[in-house]
Simulated scan of single mutants.
Amino acid sequence: MKGVKMEINEFHINNILKDMEKKEYQGYLLAQFTNIHYISNYRPTSFAFCVIKEDPIIYASKMDMEIANKTSTIEVKEFTSFSDMLGELKKEGISNLAIEPSLVYSTYEKFKDSFNIKSETFIDAQRQIKTADEIDKIQKATQIAQKAFVDLDILNNTNPENIVALELDNLMRKYGANGSSFDTIVTSGSNSSLPHATPQDKQLEKPILIDWGAKYHGYCSDNTRTIVYTEKQNEICDIVAEAHDKAIKAIKPGLKCCEIDKVARDIISEYGYGDNYIHSTGHSVGLDIHEIPTFSTKDKTVIEKGMVITVEPGIYLEDNFGVRLEDTIAIEKNKGRIIGDLPLIIE
């Protein structure tokens, strides 16, 4: 298995090296845990720096050396000091150094006087297209999350919101998840109009909105379901479901991400709720719950086979209620395929 992972990591590294060569970079500095994991199969627990170059290397903390040596597909060296690390890189002839956009400023300051530095999205671009193995893991994460939701039996659950969220998290763990993709959202009543509401110590009201996901071998899943009860709630849910279904049906390689956002947004606007659709239509999913590209008004990225992006339209009526419906979509040769088999409408 490690041989397969090594081949995949080498494939990603070689693609990034080609991008670096075009701009005459001799090194590319990574510190974000998921980026290091993506490149090497080693996920830091403390801190680490990965430098992609002809002979890539990871500088890991002493407390991480054992796990790094066991899991990394590229060379690992113990981090001793920034001066030692900088000295080694300069000795190798590195002068132009690319950095990931998320690199914290305090770390940037350590490098800025020793190299010509510029922020580059080489690894973000590489992570946009998932391998078959990555998609399999996202599918497994989704399977776990959806089974947990079904067994939660939300229609008959009498616990307060925060306990329901805990139960869902525990069920996902029970069924094989490494953890939750993000803080599970269980909200109800008027708080459902808050897209990222926090579960409260109060009994479930109507409607009930649940946004949850599992992590499996580091890869995330993401779903949202809203259980509605009143005539008005059903009316809004039907509109959101139409936007959800038609946006997914419109997905195909060659279109721009913003065009899919427009499909969902136009439908909701036609019903008079355009101002109540207050977020983008979707985001890519992988090792992080939010990756690029996004189904948003400004994202002109061309959709490609291998991308995995959520579709999650919503309508939020302030101080009243909100409805969001979300599935994760694998982009295939001619269409988008819903990952998972959970019914959209829970009755």
Rank of each mutant, 00 (worst) to 15 (best):
L86T: 13
N156C: 05
S119H: 04
G272F: 11
T80E: 13
N96Y: 08
K110Y: 04
N116L: 09
I292S: 07
G340N: 09
I345F: 14
D288E: 15
N159M: 12
V323Y: 00
E10P: 05
H37K: 11
T71F: 00
E205I: 08
S181W: 01
E332N: 05
S106D: 12
E92Q: 08
K62P: 06
D261S: 04
C258F: 10
C50V: 07
Q26Y: 10
H283M: 14
E231T: 08
G286F: 02
L166H: 08
I13E: 12
D341Q: 12
K18Q: 15
S102T: 14
K305D: 02
F295P: 07
N35H: 12
E10Y: 13
N35G: 02
G254V: 09
I309K: 13
T142Q: 15
K110L: 11
K305T: 10
G87P: 01
S190K: 15
D55L: 02
I117F: 08
E270Q: 15
I67F: 02
E78Y: 08
E10W: 14
T224I: 06
K256Y: 08
I329D: 06
E347A: 00
Q146E: 15
K202Q: 15
F47P: 01
G254K: 03
I251V: 07
V311D: 04
S81L: 12
D183P: 11
A243F: 02
K91E: 14
G286N: 06
K140A: 05
A264L: 08
I129R: 03
P195L: 12
F111Y: 15
T226E: 00
F111S: 10
S192H: 01
I57V: 09
G213H: 04
K249A: 04
T294H: 08
T230K: 05
S192I: 02
I74Q: 08
I239H: 00
H279T: 11
V311E: 03
I36V: 10
K118L: 15
N276H: 14
F149T: 09
I346T: 09
V104R: 11
Q143W: 07
K110C: 04
A177R: 00
L29E: 06
V311M: 03
R225V: 07
M172V: 11
T34H: 12
